[in-house]
């Protein structure tokens, strides 16, 4: 009797335990799936929001003009055409401006990366008097918007005169505004687009390399330059590569510096920024009557221009995505 009772009690207990366990498992499963469903929805929504404009741009870019006014067409074009690309290519002097953008961006970002690597290494590895002051200047460089000094730079390069040499030689100061020289000079001296950020990133990286590596090289009789080139640089290549990529991409889309310093060259971003004003001239070429380009049409052509500008960058990003993301992650983690 007694044993039976205990058995049943034990059984009841086990049953209750099992019930509680299943309840717990079910609850935790529901919680887990619930969280992942909510997370999935949220992420999908946000990702979709980022990508959707690109999809709209792409679909709109293929439409014939009449499709734009057809209210039954939402996304997919009824008549597919590549004419818009031809028109925008004409409007932005396409092959020429793109080639110019490519080589100027490459040149400028190479200069920037070389200069910033040297400076970043100097800040990370050497102690010299006034180091804190100069590093404060780097921070200042990050903070001061270049727009603050644009007027002064404009004037400085429009009548460039180094210690009065050019005025003495030719009677006139040199106008450097149409040449790329000032901008290359600025990139080589770390004053280009977002150079403070690259110095900061590279300094963080060089600081993270153990010092014993260098000391071993010095003990073995390696010179300073040799140590830097043979030992430190190969280690830093991922970070340097990511700085280069950032610099290249931001230079590619940059409007401010291109407008101010590269006005002698047809640069795609500058062409794109003034595309609307050139449109009416382009469409009015044949007819006498001044005809206004409809707004929807303008918008469509801007879409095409943006697409042409961003497609090379997206392709680049697909292949180098890891380099981009990881370098920032690294420089951020070592504040």
């Amino acid at each position: 009797m007694k044993t039976e009772a205990t058995l049943t009690r034990r059984e009841q207990k086990a049953k209750a335990n099992a019930k509680r366990d299943t309840k717990y498992v079910v609850m935790s499963k529901i919680k887990k799936y619930g969280v992942s469903i909510i997370r999935g929805l949220l992420l999908f929504g946000l990702c979709f929001m980022i990508i959707q404009p690109m999809i709209i741009r792409f679909c709109t870019s293929l439409m014939v003009e009449s499709d734009l006014y057809d209210s039954t067409i939402v996304l997919l074009p009824r008549h597919v055409t590549l004419d818009n690309y031809r028109i925008v290519a004409d409007l932005t002097a396409f092959p020429k401006s793109m080639i110019n953008t490519l080589w100027t961006s490459l040149l400028v970002s190479v200069c920037q990366v070389i200069a910033c690597t040297l400076v970043g290494y100097g800040f990370a590895r050497y102690s010299f008097p006034l180091k804190k002051f100069w590093f404060a200047c780097v921070v200042l460089l990050i903070i001061v918007p270049p727009q603050t000094i644009q007027t002064a730079l404009y004037v400085q390069f429009a009548s460039f005169d180094f210690l009065g040499i050019f005025r003495a030689a030719t009677g006139k100061p040199l106008n450097l505004r149409t040449s790329i020289l000032p901008y290359v000079l600025m990139s080589l001296t770390c004053m280009g687009l977002k150079d403070g950020l690259y110095i900061y990133m590279l300094r963080q990286y060089f600081k993270s390399i153990p010092k014993s590596l260098e000391e071993a090289a010095y003990v073995d009789g390696c010179s300073t330059m040799h140590t830097f080139v043979k030992i430190m640089l190969p280690d830093a290549i991922p970070t340097i590569a990511s700085c280069f990529l950032f610099s290249f991409v931001w230079q590619w889309t940059d409007l401010f510096y291109s407008r101010n310093f590269l006005s002698g060259y047809t640069i795609y971003s500058v062409q794109l920024s003034s595309i609307v004003s050139r449109m009416s001239r382009y469409f009015n070429k044949g007819s006498d009557a001044a005809q206004v380009v409809p707004n929807a049409r303008q918008q469509q052509l801007i879409f095409v221009g943006v697409l042409i500008c961003s497609i090379p960058l997206i392709i680049l990003y697909i292949f180098t995505q890891r380099t981009f993301v990881e370098s920032i992650a690294m420089s951020g983690s070592k504040e």
Partner: peptide, 27 residues
């Protein structure tokens, strides 16, 4: 060491003086 270090950051110092401080002053 200090001189070598300063040599490394020299590009920045030059740029800062000529393309930052001077234009700021002019501005």
């Amino acid at each position: 060491q200090a001189r070598t270090g300063f040599l490394f950051i020299l590009p920045f110092v030059l740029g800062f003086v000529f393309f930052m401080v001077r234009p700021m002053f002019t501005s």
